[in-house]
Write a protein that binds this DNA or RNA. Sequence first.
DNA 1: ATATCAAGTGGGAAAAAGTGGGAAATTAAA
DNA 2: TTTAATTTCCCACTTTTTCCCACTTGATAT
Lengths: 148, 148
Amino acid sequence: MLIGEYIHTIDEKNRISMPVKFRKEMGKKIIITPGLDSCLFIFTIKEWIKVSKRLSDNNNDLSFLKADQRSFNRYMFGRAAEVEIDSIGRILIPDFLKDRIGLKDKAAIIGVEDRVEVWNDKVWLQNQEVVEKQAGELAEKLGNEKTK
Amino acid sequence: MLIGEYIHTIDEKNRISMPVKFRKEMGKKIIITPGLDSCLFIFTIKEWIKVSKRLSDNNNDLSFLKADQRSFNRYMFGRAAEVEIDSIGRILIPDFLKDRIGLKDKAAIIGVEDRVEVWNDKVWLQNQEVVEKQAGELAEKLGNEKTK
DNA sequence: ATATCAAGTGGGAAAAAGTGGGAAATTAAA
DNA sequence: TTTAATTTCCCACTTTTTCCCACTTGATAT
């Protein structure tokens, strides 16, 4: 399971090292896509196959209209990139994705169960401050939904 | 069962020793997460598997499509850490969790049935004073809910 | 009173993780 | 075809983490 927060440097060559704790699970190649909220999603190949099947399956339980789904899929697939992890655990973030979330010299790399998220470090901290305050409510809310 | 209160020191390397009474039950690795209220939760691996299953939306690979779920997962998974207990019973508390609850050089380590909580020692004491006064009422209230 | 043991604390040295940069290889441009 | 630019590969440095050993304190036993 991918968990935890790491603040790493993006060097002049756009490289950023993945936390050692993630490397085994991530394997040699990963898929990096624009994510939801101001971050990027990184999936393992295995996870990406699952996700992409679900997204493209018309029989799924998404309440999207078809046109919306097309747009969403363009967003997720059209700007996804397959990226290799180099011999010492670094990846290269394509410029168009870097720009999308305003990555500069520091990034927050976050493990969220079965995906990794990449954030501008400052945006991540701000975001967590907000979530921190709501966490209690969110827990109650999700707790209720699940025990319905 | 994990019970009792211990005040331990956090050293310069962010290490804190677990009370001997907890060690057997806790095993070799634990998961430490931001808790609810101003403390951290420590789960045994076994307990964490249970908890995380409940937290993630199991029957849905695409739980990231729901905003609330994304926020909460980022909070619970993104700021969790798997930590080894060293040969003499200490754990390492990640900086991001230490900062979250304002841990300085002393922590209160509390056994709460099947999890351990970590508090800033002073916050814990204040909190206890308040709870002390409310304990009677709280008991009534919970009693009523459970016997409904 | 002294020795012994267990629990907790502190610190040095080795190992690992993360960062930076040069040179070779590849691609693009002139 | 040569030159310039970009990308890839590899090595080296720095910082952080881990591992191990030793000290302190307080309780118990001799």
